[in-house]
Every structure is written in C-alpha cells, then in structure tokens.
C-alpha cells in the first residue's frame, strides 16, 4: 500500500491542538451563553477555560501561519488556481458530484492528494476561508470580547461591541455545523479511521478517496 507523507509534524500538532481547543471552546461557549439552562460547570470555570483556550488557539494559529507562510506551502496548498477558473470550477463540480453521487455508487475520488496538492477544490476553498477569514476573525473578536477596553480600537474598527459579539457568535454557530461535517468527512477514507490515523502519523495510506 502506497504511503504519502501528507501531514508534517507542525501541521499535525497544530491540527490536534486546534481540534481539541475548538471542541472545548464551542462547549464552554455554550455553557457561558446558556448559564441559566446548562450546568456542566460554573460560569466562572467556563469563562476561565474559554479564555485560556482562546489564547492557546491564538498561539496555535501562529504555528500554522509560520509553518505555511515560512515554507511558502500556503500558496501551493491553500490558494485555488484562480488563474484557471474554468478548470477549477469544473474540478469543484466533479468533487461535489462525487460526494453527492459518486461516493454512493462506488466512483473513485477525483482528487488524489499529494504533499503539494493536499486539498480537493472544495477543501481548498473551505480551508482558505477558515484559515484566512474565519479563525483570524474569531480570534480578533474573541480578543475584543476578552477585554473590550484594551482592544477598544479594534472593537470600534469592527463596528462596535455588538457587531463583534455577533461575528464571534455567528462563527461559533458555523463551527458547530462545520465540526460535525468535518468529523464525518474525516471518516471517508479507505477505512473510517484512515484519514484520522494519517493526521496522527502524517502518512496517508490511501489517497484515492478522501
């Protein structure tokens, strides 16, 4: 069985720290918002965990950023070939068709991941948006809400605390959706654990499917 080294160590560390932080942040966020309905932990504990993990996520983001920008892999892996838009759209539609139909009838995944072309077109757009827009926005809005006086200028630039809070919460809502979809899609390897093991070892054994 062919093995491809898809996930270097910094990426794997980043991914798992990110994953665990995300899940806990979503849950503590839920506890903070629904303090009157949920009693998993005290409000103070939830805020404490949420704040600590927020900073963990912030540092972790810089690991990703330094690795991908330092190695210039970001541009190869994350930037869709907008200079070949028609071809990109066709590939994206093929990928949609695969997930919606092909996978059901036993078609082969049209995307074959390599270290330089890790993501299929749908992943490429989704992860680019998540890493360049959603997570930075989540971190920035989180910082403003963490200390609205310290980050007053940032808050004003974003349109005020209510808008900041809205963005932070709206992204929280999006991640609640994304995390289930992402977790499910990670089971679509040649075995249900193939992609997950790959994210632990770094080696993807089966790259015909995603």
């Amino acid at each position: 069985m062919k093995k491809v080294y898809l996930h270097p160590l910094p990426v794997r560390i980043w991914h798992w720290v990110n994953a665990i932080s995300f899940i806990i942040l979503i849950l503590t966020g839920l506890q903070i918002r629904l303090v009157d309905k949920m009693h998993w932990m005290s409000f103070k504990t939830a805020v404490k965990i949420h704040s600590y993990l927020g900073f963990v996520l912030l540092i972790n983001y810089f690991i990703w950023f330094i690795y991908y920008f330092g190695t210039l892999k970001f541009f190869k892996i994350y930037i869709p070939p907008i200079w070949r838009p028609i071809e990109f759209i066709k590939r994206a539609l093929r990928q949609v068709r695969y997930y919606a139909y092909g996978i059901m009838v036993g078609d082969k995944n049209p995307h074959h991941p390599t270290p330089e072309n890790k993501f299929n077109p749908l992943q490429q757009v989704a992860y680019l948006m998540i890493m360049i827009v959603c997570i930075p926005l989540q971190l920035i809005t989180g910082l403003v809400l963490w200390d609205p006086v310290k980050f007053k200028t940032l808050g004003s630039l974003l349109g005020g605390l209510q808008i900041v809070s809205f963005i932070h919460t709206a992204l929280w809502v999006f991640y609640a959706f994304f995390i289930f979809v992402h977790m499910y899609l990670s089971t679509l390897g040649h075995t249900p654990l193939a992609h997950i093991i790959a994210m632990i070892t770094g080696y993807e054994e089966e790259h015909e499917e995603h």
Partner: peptide
Amino acid sequence: RDFYVLGLTK
C-alpha cells in the same frame, strides 16, 4: 452598538 454584557445582552 457598544453595550454588551456577556449572557445578559445575548
């Protein structure tokens, strides 16, 4: 715009 109290003004 600028009145936000965690939990209370959600």
